[in-house]
Design a protein around this nucleic acid. Structure first.
Lengths: 134, 134
DNA sequence: GAAAAAGGTTATAGTTGGTGGAAAGTTTTT
DNA sequence: AAAAACTTTCCACCAACTATAACCTTTTTC
């Protein structure tokens, strides 16, 4: 099948698929007219990549997962380790965002939000370091 | 003062300061030798930017906040609106990350994590769409 | 059958928020 | 005087795409 249909079936768009190919992630055959020709296995690989990206793996991690996906001799322990290490990264990001959220809300609380120039948010952001994050 | 000292006092590094200048965010004078020459107001601006970035504003938002910071006729309502709109973005990101975390953990739970190839994580990632996020 | 629309190809550049390095000039330290 | 430290500009790179151009092939429409 052509790239458009592969895109539809995998949930990726054509540009992304070509980009992934440029990284060597999925390498389809070519038809006589030069068009890429995807098998259903290729589409399965693309869909796998789409799912990996959807849970936040970066493309290097996706590559590793794809290799494990294709390896009949994989150990599930290795897959699980990759996932748990990624969970740790996600949790670090969550913490950072929660801290930001807390700081923003506590600054906003002190700000009247009216027509005057006085603004606790500006005052806080202008404060000399160290900047106190909640 | 030179860029190195401005960097030290603002918490930004010299490269970042030059980058911000290239975006027109902070434009210091030049000394006779061609070196950038920062006033303490410049440094205050840089520090302000550093703090804005630390709570996750993008550089366009930083530019708006900086304009409000410098505007004696600002309305604190406008500042607060910017902050609350950013809080909404942060919360959207938080939700996305929490969903990822949930999906990852629920997949990991089903995976034995042993020496066998059977792996619920791989099975889930390989599933046809739609990919069920928790 | 011809024209137009839709899809495909490559290559290049832009996005965000910086960071790294080269090559050269200036200042400070030894 | 030499060496180290600092500054300058410019160009290239990172992730993970997205956009555009210029051109080619296939399909649809009239």
């Amino acid at each position: 099948m052509n790239i458009g249909q592969a895109a539809e079936r995998s949930g990726l768009n054509s540009k992304t698929i070509r980009y992934y190919e440029s990284l060597g992630l999925v390498e389809p055959d070519r038809a006589e007219n030069g068009y890429r020709d995807y098998t259903s296995d290729d589409v399965a690989r693309l869909r796998f990549l789409q799912h990996c990206r959807a849970v936040g793996f970066n493309l290097d991690e996706c590559r590793e997962l794809l290799a494990l996906y294709e390896d009949p001799n994989r150990r599930s322990a290795e897959v699980k380790a990759l996932v748990m290490s990624h969970v740790a990264q996600v949790e670090a990001q969550l913490e950072q965002l929660e801290t930001m959220r807390g700081t923003l809300l506590s600054m906003a609380e002190q700000c009247p939000g009216d027509d005057h120039a006085d603004c606790a948010i500006i005052d806080n952001l202008a404060q000399p370091m160290p900047f106190k994050l909640v």
